[in-house]
Design a protein around this nucleic acid. Structure first.
Length: 292
DNA sequence: TGCTCAAGCGTAGTCTCTTG
DNA sequence: CAAGAGACTACGCTTGAGCA
């Protein structure tokens, strides 16, 4: 039984990090000397911005996602690889893929071996209070993301834009990228101003999905979106549900294509492609012609 | 070879402006 | 008038190109 994102995972993040980082690097310190993961809504005094937690939560969530995906593909002879490099797909040492599913487990990858690219955009979602009263580390959840000032994960508009931008950068890097689906993995919902946009990104073939692997991001049965109309966004509630979606992603032979053509040109291309015998062949010829 | 430094990655707070 | 989007800022960390 594999669990998706939940409060225990965040607790684990703080517990692991406290082994080598100071509480001051992981928490805000309030006026009355409380150690909190986020400023509570309406905190009255002067606030500062914590920076030292950023890279820690970044690498923790990427590792956590890699392990989760590894569970999905391990019995298929495939591998989840963290920080993959593939120059042909604009995935360089400076701008790696967070996680890829591949036929091999090397950091350096060939486009032909990569089956899916995952961009991880996750944060600490809940607010936490840390205490160390001598008897050891004590972490208490003091509220969901509606109770603190933070705007975690995919709820930030610029995170959405960055994820979309990186996907486009990969898709236009090389025609070999057109066969590889790209998924943005988050642990929060998205704002309603992005509902129709994620569907358009999916339909136009740029991002195959914004997936949240946090089944219950809000306490007290708070309302939160399950999916958008065209499944551009989807919130997973069980590991098996995630496994099924990834399996169907891996089972098809995908193609991304984009172009600006006149109706006349398109008609000519379709006519030529239609002379082929099978649907697969028609598709192949269509794609070859549209890329010429 | 070892050094510096720009450019990339990451998250998060603040602020302004638009929108309803 | 309130809420949210997006721009901007901040800063910690890593990579790799250029250069002495």
């Amino acid at each position: 039984m594999v669990n998706l994102w939940n409060k225990d995972v965040e607790k684990k993040f703080f517990n692991e990090s406290l082994a080598f980082a100071t509480p001051e690097q992981l928490f805000y310190v309030t006026d009355d000397n409380r150690y909190l993961a986020y400023w509570p809504k309406g905190y009255p005094s002067e606030k500062n911005t914590l920076q030292s937690r950023n890279s820690l939560i970044g690498s923790f969530t990427e590792k956590w996602t890699t392990d989760l995906l590894q569970e999905v593909v391990k019995d298929k002879g495939l591998f989840a690889v963290q920080g993959a490099i593939c120059e042909e797909l604009a995935l360089t040492g400076k701008s790696r893929a967070d996680v890829v599913i591949s036929k091999n487990k090397n950091i350096r990858q060939k486009p032909e071996d990569i089956l899916t690219i995952f961009e991880v955009k996750m944060s600490v979602v809940w607010n936490w209070e840390f205490r160390n009263d001598g008897s050891g580390i004590n972490l208490t959840c003091i509220g969901d993301y509606k109770t603190h000032e933070g705007n975690p994960g995919l709820l930030r508009s610029d995170s959405m834009l960055k994820a979309a931008g990186k996907s486009i950068n990969i898709k236009v890097s090389n025609f070999k990228a057109s066969k590889i689906p790209i998924i943005v993995m988050g642990n929060t919902p998205i704002t309603n101003s992005y509902y129709s946009k994620v569907d358009h990104l999916k339909i136009s073939g740029i991002v195959q999905g914004f997936w949240s692997v946090n089944p219950k991001p809000l306490d007290n049965n708070g309302e939160n979106i399950k999916k958008t109309e065209k499944l551009g966004f989807y919130r997973f509630e069980k590991f098996d549900e995630l496994r099924n979606s990834i399996e169907s992603l891996l089972s098809e032979d995908w193609n991304f294509f984009s172009s600006m053509r006149s109706n006349k040109e398109l008609g000519q291309i379709i006519e030529l492609a239609n002379r082929e015998k099978t649907y697969e062949k028609k598709g192949e010829v269509f794609l070859r012609l549209i890329n010429e």
